[in-house]
Design a protein around this nucleic acid. Structure first.
Length: 802
RNA sequence: GCCGCUAUGGCGGAACUGGCAGACGCAAGGGACUUAAAAUCCCUCGGUGGAAACACUGUACCGGUUCGAUUCCGGUUAGCGGCACCA
């Protein structure tokens, strides 16, 4: 009796859809459960075998929750704006929308063939004007609260995409997407003040259940540090303010450095006797790309500002000021006090420029290398601080700075504001208008959505303007404020905009009065379980937490954090252990797998492949093993016998399996859950028969993993009323998970010497007595004295002899 | 350099809270069925010695704690991910 997945799988997919079994209900009185996967970007390549891994994992959770009586929301949509569609459009003179919609249709058909229990009635797409109306609406709220602003700034510019990038999108000095060189350009950009939320984005990680590595990465990225700002007097008269995390080393500051972009260079121009050399250095620094700047990091460079010097506020000594690109304009005050004895970079610089190195923390040899240890040292050469530990000195000096007005304690973050404009067509238009008289004016909310106009050319311009800039009819408008002539913003939003709030739209996707109703938000928020890739930790995950917190402050959402629990899946590699790619020729197409083995086998295999959180190589032999399991399950119907109920000799096997599967599906251990089902299969086939009740339990346990074959089994064996998907999750009895007799191990001095079969509840005394009576053990302990007896209930006896 | 993580058979991987290392699956070898093959079923399967019972040994490496360590502690090595001149 061969199992034919090609007729069974489409049959059930159709039935589920017709009956709407997976539709979530708003306003239900049942407890809710919201499971979420990252909505895909519908690329031209179609579905990858990596996609079904997280989809199946949360599908198992969602299906199990439904069987447990929850009203489950498990939605999907499309993150459909994005560069590939625009590039395709440029190349083929087609509209990016057509291309994207074709891809969506393809993705949808592929995903539906996997039997994932998504609620398709809530499908959304970020390119839908009814959707991006609310993306624009949120932007307007940010603007109204002063969290969106336009600023001339030095931005990352991808030379190939001809577009600015957020800091998060620059990886090793090149464009994250295309790998091309990234250079600096001064441009006027819309910015979002994510820095305003830096502290809360760290603090509220305590409220959520995320993997430690995700929390650590976000904290790292936000980069909080504590220290002090200190004012140094200069011979030019101006105070030069620096930020330092080591105010304790202030007595050791022997020179200062400002970044090449620091405004004081301009301010002091007429006082500098070597202005030409300084200008030359600034020009060189400006020309360097991020990549070059990182490469050059090995060798320190710089120029002294001749004609101006600073005064160390504690030692009152005059110290030189340098300009060097090892100081970044964007962090702290763009200027530092250099303490070569206790900072590696300052030490290198001091060595190169023959500057004095003064030890202020004892413990190392500062002529050999910088001593940066904060734990062991004691302060020296430091006036009021002498004899204190570093920690004490930090506290003492900060008090002193505040008393004398020289400085104050200060917290700094590495996190930068979010560059929000893109010089591209295929994104949400930014709903802002520029009026000569009124400046930037937001579009009235009643005019949303501001839709994308049809253009003829999608080619971005070399001067850095969006293709929309050519659309004079669209660009020229009237000022909503004064009614005079005005121009629209022609930059669009980044792809991260639509994905920063999509999970809220699923709660109430057809609402035209609000992004979601209060009732829907109160019922569904927060997301109970959100699974997604590690690569989004400092991008999407951080951005969406920021937007959600902003909405929380507006009173628009009910909880401080959007996602109660976050997990991450590992990638699926090619059979050769390499990342799948066309050029390596190791790509597995999910359509082929579904066609040959069926969706159930594919799902089981992707869950059985290994630790869910780790990468795992595809194995075509491995998937055959899962197909074998599916067929063995199918053949259980031939073992059906006339007996009733769950029979005593297999009862504990069933209860153990229910327990194991129930628990493991909650902790991402899908591989061992399936192993438990395989073990149960071995027990049943060994026994050679199965009752209807036993088969019903088996079928329900397997249902979340392999939904199609289990529905078919449920139906043809008449295992109960309705569909398998409409039943209740099997319950186990802890007492019945235990066997009547257990095998305990008898060790002598920690080495296994015998095994005993004893009744499960045996007492310590009986176990020890039986162990000592055992033939083998008697021999081992004869003539020796037992100095210690250890008994671990139901597991082992250990006799320590001398 | 900093932060986080990992290391177990031929392979993917199990092992609760310190208690039988290698569950489950794959591959391999042997056998049954078959004219043959596929499929299916049965047996073996970390290493060394042994016909076998069994013994010794074994979870990257060195050391420690413990009756007992894959698990805890200290150190080393290798690999993965993130950040990186952030003062």
């Amino acid at each position: 009796m061969k199992y034919d997945h090609k007729t069974v799988e489409p049959k059930w997919q159709k039935k589920w859809e017709e009956k709407g079994v997976f539709y979530a209900e708003n306003g239900s009185r049942k407890p809710k459960y919201y499971a979420l996967i990252e909505f895909p970007y519908p690329s031209g390549q179609g579905l990858h075998v990596g996609h079904p891994r997280p989809y199946t994992a949360l599908d198992i959770v969602a299906r199990k929750r439904r069987l447990q009586g929850y009203n489950v929301l498990y939605p999907i949509g499309w993150d459909a704006f994005g560069l590939p569609a625009e590039n395709y459009a440029i190349k083929n003179h087609a509209h990016p929308r057509e291309f994207t919609e074709k891809n969506i249709a393809h993705f949808k058909q592929q995903i539906q063939s996997l039997g994932i229990s998504f609620d398709w009635s809530r499908e959304i797409s970020t390119i839908d004007p009814d959707y991006y109306k609310w993306t624009q609406w949120i932007f307007l709220q940010l603007y109204k609260k002063g969290l969106a602003y336009k600023k001339e700034m030095n931005v990352n510019w991808c030379t190939s995409c001809k577009c600015v990038l957020a800091n998060e999108e620059v990886v090793n000095g090149v464009c994250e997407r295309c790998g091309s060189e990234v250079v600096h350009k001064v441009k006027s950009q819309w910015m979002l003040k994510i820095t305003e939320y830096a502290q809360r984005l760290i603090d509220d990680l305590d409220l959520v259940d995320y993997p430690e590595r995700v929390k650590a990465q976000q904290k790292n990225w936000i980069g909080r540090s504590t220290g002090a700002e200190v004012d140094f007097d200069t011979t030019a008269g101006d105070k030069l303010t620096v930020y330092t995390t080591r105010p304790d080393t202030l007595y050791g500051a022997t020179y200062m450095v400002i970044s090449p972009e620091h405004p004081f260079v301009e301010k002091w121009a007429d006082k500098l006797t070597n202005l030409a050399a300084v200008r030359e250095y600034q020009d060189q620094a400006a020309k360097k790309s991020d990549f070059e700047r990182t490469e050059m990091a090995k060798e320190k460079t710089g120029v002294r500002l001749e004609g101006v010097s600073a005064i160390n506020p504690l030692t009152k000594k005059e110290i030189p000021i340098f300009v060097s690109d090892y100081v970044l304009v964007s962090y702290g005050t763009g200027a530092i006090m250099a303490v070569p004895a206790h900072d590696t970079r300052d030490w290198e610089f001091a060595r190169k420029f023959h500057l004095p190195i003064i030890e202020v923390v004892k413990g190392g040899n500062v002529q050999e290398e910088a001593f940066t240890d904060c734990e062991t040292g004691v302060m020296v050469n430091s006036g009021i601080l002498d004899g204190l530990t570093v920690e004490e000195a930090k506290k003492r000096i900060t008090e002193h700075l505040e008393e004398t007005g020289i400085g104050h304690a200060k917290v700094n973050f590495k996190l930068r504001d979010w560059v929000f404009s893109r010089q591209r067509y295929w994104g949400e238009p930014i709903p802002m208008v520029y009026c000569e008289k009124c400046g930037w004016v937001p579009l009235p909310e009643s005019e949303l959505p501001l839709t994308l106009p049809e253009v003829e050319s999608y080619e971005p311009t070399d001067n850095g303007e969006s293709p929309l800039a050519h659309m004079t009819d669209w660009v020229n408008t009237t000022c909503p404020h004064c009614g005079g002539p005005a121009k629209r913003e022609t930059d669009t939003m980044p792809q991260w905009a639509g994905s920063s709030w999509y999970f809220l739209r699923y709660m109430d996707p057809h609402n035209d009065k609000a992004f979601a109703s209060k009732e829907a938000l109160d019922y569904w928020a927060p997301v109970d379980w959100y699974n997604g890739g590690m690569e989004h930790t400092t991008l999407h995950l951080l951005y969406s937490r920021f937007w959600y917190k902003f909405l929380y402050d507006l009173g628009a959402v009910p909880t401080p954090e959007p996602y109660a629990k976050r997990t991450s899946h590992g990638m699926i590699l090619g059979e050769d252990g390499q990342k799948m790619s066309k050029s390596r020729g190791n790509v597995i197409n999910p359509d082929d797998v579904v066609d040959e083995y069926g969706a159930d086998t594919m799902r089981l295999y992707e869950m059985f492949i290994g630790d869910f959180e780790k990468t795992a190589p595809w194995s075509s032999a491995g998937i055959k093993g899962c197909r074998r399991f599916v067929e063995r399950f199918w053949n259980l119907q031939s073992l059906l016998c006339g007996e009733k109920g769950i029979r005593p000799d297999v009862e504990s096997a069933f209860h153990k399996a229910i327990k194991k599967v129930s628990e493991d599906t909650e902790t991402l251990k899908f591989n061992t859950a399936i192993a438990a089902l395989m073990t149960l299969m071995n027990v049943v086939t060994e026994k050679g028969s199965i009752t209807k009740e036993e088969l019903a339990v088996f079928t329900l346990l397997l249902n979340p993993f392999a939904p199609h074959i289990t529905e078919e089994m449920w139906e043809i064996c008449s295992l109960g009323d309705g569909m398998a998907a409409e039943q209740s999750w099997p319950a186990y009895d802890e007492a019945k998970c235990k066997e009547d007799t257990v095998e305990i191990v008898v060790q002598v001095c920690g080495k296994v010497r015998a095994r005993l079969n004893v009744p499960a509840g045996i007492s310590k005394e009986d176990a020890l007595r039986l162990a000592k009576e055992e033939e083998k053990i008697r021999g081992e302990i004869a003539g020796k004295s037992v100095v210690k007896e250890i008994y671990v209930p139901g597991k082992l006896v250990n006799l320590v002899v001398k």
